[in-house]
Simulated scan of single mutants.
Amino acid sequence: MKIITALFFSVATFSSIVFAHGDKHQNDALFKGLDSPAAKVVVAFHEALKSGGKQQAQDLLADDVTIFEGGGVERSALEYAQHHMLADMAYLSAVDSQTLEHQVEVVGTTAISISRSHTKGVYKGKERDYESMETMILELQKGSWKIIHIHWSN
């Protein structure tokens, strides 16, 4: 419970810092912290999903990652790799996605990545055109950043 409370406080504080600048500095805050090693893991994960790199994507996840998507939950990297990852890869290879904003904040051995993107294209004969949001929490484990939680929503 302490970890969840601390992460909630960190996300709330991070969100208020990022979005409290007003219109004058809004663009400066839309992309932040992307040179950090943790941010590079997030980008590599997205690239692996888009290119069909199943093993590369799985290697960036903590073994006990929790993934919330579409009202469902997957509770390990293996579960995700055996189920929903392949559908995500097929979908992402068929549509175009543009990142509208992405901020990564590193606090000690924890990193929080929040982003918003616009996706457009045709998948399984249906037009897709929407904005989505993503939150990832990463943890430094044995010298490598691993994704420990993902929450995707439209």
Score class of each variant (00 low, 15 high):
Asp23Thr: 11
Gly143Asn: 15
His84Gly: 05
Leu30Val: 08
Ala111Arg: 04
Val11Ile: 15
Leu140Met: 03
Phe31Ala: 08
Ser117Ala: 14
Leu138Phe: 04
Thr109His: 05
Glu101Cys: 08
Ser153Gly: 14
Val73Tyr: 11
Ile4Tyr: 04
Ala48Cys: 03
Val107Gly: 03
Leu34Arg: 13
Gly53Cys: 10
Met1Phe: 06
Gly108Ala: 03
Lys50Ala: 13
Gln26Ile: 08
Gln55Met: 07
Ala12Gly: 14
Lys120Ile: 13
His46Asp: 06
Gly70Tyr: 11
Ala62Met: 09
Asp59Asn: 15
Lys50Trp: 05
Ser93Leu: 04
Thr119Pro: 06
Asp63Ala: 09
Lys126Gln: 10
His149Phe: 03
Gly121Asp: 04
Ala6Val: 00
Ala38Leu: 07
Ile4Pro: 02
Ser10Val: 06
Ser144Asp: 15
Leu49Cys: 14
Asp23Lys: 08
Val73Glu: 11
Gln56Ile: 05
Ser76Phe: 09
Ser16Pro: 02
Leu49Trp: 00
Ala20Asn: 13
Gly143Gln: 15
Met1Val: 07
Gln141Arg: 15
Ala29Phe: 13
Ser97Gly: 12
Gly52Glu: 01
Leu30Tyr: 12
Ala38His: 06
Ala77Thr: 01
Ala38Phe: 00
Ala39Gln: 10
Gln141Pro: 05
Val11Ser: 08
Ile3Pro: 04
Glu139His: 00
Lys142Val: 01
Gln98Lys: 13
Glu79Lys: 08
Trp152Pro: 02
Gly125Cys: 10
Gly71Ile: 10
